[in-house]
């Protein structure tokens, strides 16, 4: 661990916080139809779009209408993308003349991209044409917008005097035109300025000094990279993802990409604060979540800089764990990226997570299992509020206060739905892992024996369930078994909990807002913040500790005991 590393972290989090607060306010303005600088440019376009599609964007929706519109639009988006990928070999924009995509890869890829997961069971530059990549890029804009607006609909249920959750289509369009498109456009230009290429020219052929011919994959990288990070998508246009020198050429682009992935989910907490007219509440949630993430970052950073004692003994020298890392990012740049990408469920990688030290891998896994360390666009805030509801209920019972949240009474219906939404996550991770380990098809893909092999399988399903998309690459996930299994887990992980949260929103919307009284449990205090954090950690630990003990913890203890596999 170095002073330079710590200063780098401090600078990053200061800049992030300074940008996230205005970004959060801007998102509030966008969704509450307040004037923004893009009104003159985007306004006519949006109105034309609604007129053309026959949608009355002024009509407010109930939870049921909002949920159906969300699901229906996602289905409608998935179908053309699926067909483009299916027929890419006969469609234009295929300069490398790539052939058909296999059926299981097709299913997995579309399920993965329509859910904002971007889990990739294929090598992009060898599998997908430029047109297919553009189709996926469309989903990289539309799906984070979908997650974001569901979270906005949810927080509207707490807003005073509201009788509906808003109009899904207006929210979705405004999220794309006012937030993702302009932000990604600027980010892509900045990335190009710092050396990220962007071309439709197809692969370049180079003749090396030794006379060998080398084919270098090229693509519209900057455009893809910007929304890949900004939308917490994570799917690379090149197989090495953000470790590739085209996707992430230097320390500056690395910093920009880290900021892009963290900006909007962090800002959304402040948007939420504006909706409930309680900025202190937003700062409390931000504070405890940031504290947790910083603690986990320090675990990764210290584990990676300490290195592997077995390797030290073998080489006779001490040093950090450089395996799977890019020297241009260093230990701090790699540790921070690995922490952020699993906290914000982006899934982009600039270091190979399979090569992280056992404790580094444990943090990556644990963050995806908790799914509340900021989390992805919208989905993260929804998960945080799901735990807040449970915390209010549990604490209210303990101290004999009325379980109320932001003026709305929390009753059996909301707690049951929040409990179900919370249980789905461990159920699909652990259930799918159990099935994979119990079947020959599941075990065949495990390339590492012992504890690390178990970690690889759990990581795959945690990443799928959390809609993260990063992988412990030691597992061969491009088999039909894993393509189908992770695809199904991805779909359930995304939609079931979101629908349940919209159901809670509908239920809360129907309740009268009651003014705070002496009997109300205040949630905008540090005491409640720590209780919330404790409940997240206790539930997370109780649910996942056994599998973590059998995976990364056992691996760490074996390493310290000098055991090799």
């Amino acid at each position: 661990m170095t002073l330079q590393g710590f200063l780098g972290f401090a600078l990053f989090f200061l800049v992030l916080t300074a940008l996230a607060v205005p970004a959060g306010r801007y998102m509030y303005r966008v969704f509450e139809l307040q004037p923004t600088f893009l009104d003159k440019v985007m306004g006519p376009f949006e109105r034309g779009l609604f007129r053309l599609s026959g949608i009355d964007e002024t009509k407010g929706m109930s939870w049921r209408q909002y949920a159906i519109a969300f699901l229906l639009s996602n289905m409608v988006m998935a179908v053309p993308v699926y067909l483009i990928l299916m027929f890419q070999q006969v469609l234009p924009l295929n300069p490398a003349h790539l052939g058909a995509v296999s059926p299981t890869t097709l299913f997995n890829t579309v399920a993965s991209f329509v859910t904002n997961t971007n889990w990739q069971v294929y090598t992009p530059e060898q599998t997908l044409s430029n047109l297919s990549e553009f189709a996926l890029e469309f989903l990289q804009f539309a799906t984070p917008a979908g997650g974001l607006v569901v979270a906005i609909a949810f927080v509207r249920s707490f807003a005073l005097g509201r009788t509906d959750l808003g109009n899904y289509y207006r929210d979705l369009v405004r999220a794309v035109t006012r937030i993702f498109l302009p932000f990604a456009f600027v980010a892509a230009i900045v990335l190009i300025a710092f050396g990220v290429p962007d071309t439709l020219g197809g692969p370049a052929v180079a003749h090396t000094l030794q006379g060998a011919v080398q084919v270098i994959a090229r693509a519209p990288v900057a455009a893809f990279e910007a929304i890949k990070q900004l939308g917490t998508n994570g799917g690379g246009i090149l197989n090495a993802n953000s470790a590739h020198p085209f996707e992430n050429p230097n320390a500056v682009t690395n910093l920009i990409e880290e900021l892009l992935m963290a900006l909007l989910p962090t800002g959304l907490i402040f948007t939420f604060g504006q909706y409930i007219r309680n900025r202190r509440q937003a700062w409390i949630i931000f504070g405890v979540t940031m504290t947790l993430m910083l603690a986990l970052l320090l675990v990764v950073y210290s584990a990676e800089t300490a290195g592997n004692p077995l390797v030290h003994r073998l080489l006779g020298i001490a040093g950090p764990n450089w395996e799977g890392k890019e020297t241009r990012f260093g230990m701090s740049g790699s540790s921070l990226f690995a922490t952020l990408t699993t906290a914000y469920t982006t899934g982009a990688v600039n270091t190979m997570h399979d090569s992280l030290m056992p404790l580094g891998g444990l943090v990556a896994l644990f963050q995806m299992m908790l799914n509340t360390v900021f989390g992805g666009k919208g989905a993260g805030l929804l998960n945080i509020l799901m735990y807040v509801i449970l915390s209010v209920f549990v604490t209210g019972l303990m101290v004999g206060r009325t379980p109320e949240l932001f003026g709305k009474k929390i009753e059996t219906r909301e707690v049951a739905a929040a409990g179900a939404a919370m249980l789905i996550h461990p159920f699909i991770i652990l259930g799918a892992t159990a099935i994979a380990l119990a079947t020959a098809a599941g075990r065949l893909s495990v390339l590492n024996p012992g504890f690390h092999g178990l970690s690889e399988v759990v990581y795959a399903f945690s990443s799928a369930a959390a809609n993260n998309g990063s992988a412990f690459a030691g597992l061969n996930a491009s088999t039909p078994f894993y393509a189908i299994a992770t695809g199904v887990v991805i779909l359930i992980g995304r939609y079931v909990s979101m629908v349940l949260m919209l159901y809670i929103a509908g239920s809360l919307l129907a309740k009268k807002t009651v003014p705070a009284s002496a009997g109300t449990l205040r949630t905008d205090t540090f005491t409640f913040g720590w209780i919330y954090l404790g409940i997240v950690l206790i539930i997370g630990a109780l649910t996942f500790f056994p599998v973590l003990a059998l995976g990364p913890i056992a691996e760490q203890l074996s390493m310290l005991a000098g055991k090799v596999f």
Binding site: W63, R64, L71, N74, Y82, L83, R413, V496
Partner: peptide, 30 residues
């Protein structure tokens, strides 16, 4: 081709099933 379409059918059916569940869901006050 048939196998390719099977995946698409799976995704569409998944969405239709959820939409049906939401549409049929009773008990929620709106």
């Amino acid at each position: 081709m048939a196998e390719d379409l099977l995946g698409l059918l799976g995704i569409v059916l998944f969405f239709l099933m959820l939409i049906w569940a939401v549409a049929r869901w009773g008990g929620a006050k709106e």
